[in-house]
């Protein structure tokens, strides 16, 4: 694989919440790259630290949360070294974000136009008239019918899908180089979901921006992403390009996610949910976080935390099975495509 330029490189990011003297490690050493112009998917069960990772990139973590370590290199500069003022100039300008809850993410007391204009005013100094013209243009771009009318409406006058389009218009206002979409379709109807994903994909190609697509849905990943980081309990357990991940998943957690997902590209005999539940933050296993739920776990797994390691082809795995120290069955097959038969 050829070496590509990365617009964002997150290294060993750690974000914790300090509650009553206890540290809850919501993001515990997350590492991933976003290649320029491409889409990185971050996937994992609810509570695995996807949103906190995303919010950490723009330093939107409020009290009692705190970024306690790591690097967030955006075009070669570590955002964590930036002043409050510098990071404000990045937010909504170079890096934008859209959120899971379109119903509550817009300010109910300002019109759609006012909210879109705000970013244009802050970052480009556009006045009211020019800002409104641009806002109408953006609403048109995100496929909102009769934008002239919509621009003076309040969020309560719009449906969830329309509000998410407004959020996207707002995020795109200053032509960001990176768009972070945190479960942008989770709260929407299935048909609207597909439309919004399609819209983001189209706009990405049009503008040439990079995207981080956060989701708990591997279907969304398959549809929209070029690369995938699989997260579990605040850590990345597998990072690969999307074809590799679906064809040859290596981490037992990734395999578990795939087996619990209905797929159209392979015949499945049955859907197999991952057994057990995500451990609560105050009761993290000492070794591999996934060991208690992993069918292959050995003593090594239960007692020692594996590192995220390069396994070639730009792929990274956090699992003892792919190391020299592995003490289990050397022939172990984590993913068995023969259990399902290929189907063109």
């Amino acid at each position: 694989m050829k070496q590509e330029e990365n617009i964002l490189e997150v290294k060993d990011l750690r974000t914790s919440f300090f509650i009553e003297g206890e540290e809850v490690k919501a993001v515990d050493g997350v590492t991933f790259d976003v290649p320029k112009g491409q889409t990185l998917g971050i996937v994992g069960e609810s509570g695995s630290g996807k949103s906190i990772s995303a919010l950490s990139i723009l330093q939107l973590i409020g009290h009692p949360g705190k970024i306690v370590g790591g690097e967030i290199n955006f075009k070669g500069e570590n955002l964590l070294d930036f002043s409050e003022k510098q990071i404000r100039q990045i937010r909504g300008n170079k890096i934008s974000m859209i959120f899971q809850e379109p119903m509550t993410s817009l300010n109910p007391t300002y019109t759609v136009g006012q909210q879109i204009r705000e970013a244009l005013k802050i970052h480009q100094g556009l006045g009211k008239q020019k800002g409104t013209d641009k806002a109408i243009e953006l609403l048109e771009l995100v496929g909102i019918p009769s934008p002239q009318k919509r621009v003076t409406q309040y969020p309560f006058e719009l449906s969830g899908g329309m509000r998410q389009r407004v959020m996207i218009a707002m995020a795109l206002a200053c032509n960001p180089e990176l768009l972070i979409a945190d479960e942008p379709t989770t709260a929407l109807d299935v048909t609207i979901q597909a439309q919004i994903l399609e819209l983001i994909k189209e706009l990405q190609q049009e503008i040439g921006m990079s995207v981080i697509m956060i989701t708990h849905d591997l279907g969304v990943v398959a549809e929209t992403c070029d690369y995938v980081a699989v997260m579990y309990c605040g850590k990345v357990v597998e990072y690969a390009d999307v074809r590799t991940l679906f064809k040859n998943p290596r981490h037992p957690y990734t395999v578990g996610l795939l087996n619990s997902l209905p797929r159209s590209d392979v015949d499945q005999e049955e859907l197999i949910p991952i057994k057990g539940t995500v451990p609560p933050p105050h009761d993290m296993p000492e070794g591999c976080r996934f060991a208690p739920r992993c069918p292959f776990a050995t003593d090594l797994c239960h007692n020692h935390l594996p590192e995220l390691k390069d396994v070639g082809d730009g792929e990274q795995i956090r699992c003892w099975i792919y190391t020299d120290e592995w003490d289990g069955d050397p022939e172990v097959k984590v993913y068995e495509p023969e259990r399902t038969s290929e189907n063109k």
Partner: peptide, 9 residues
């Protein structure tokens, strides 16, 4: 929506 405002810069 407060988080949205902050995310806008």
């Amino acid at each position: 929506y407060i988080r949205t405002a902050r995310a806008k810069g």
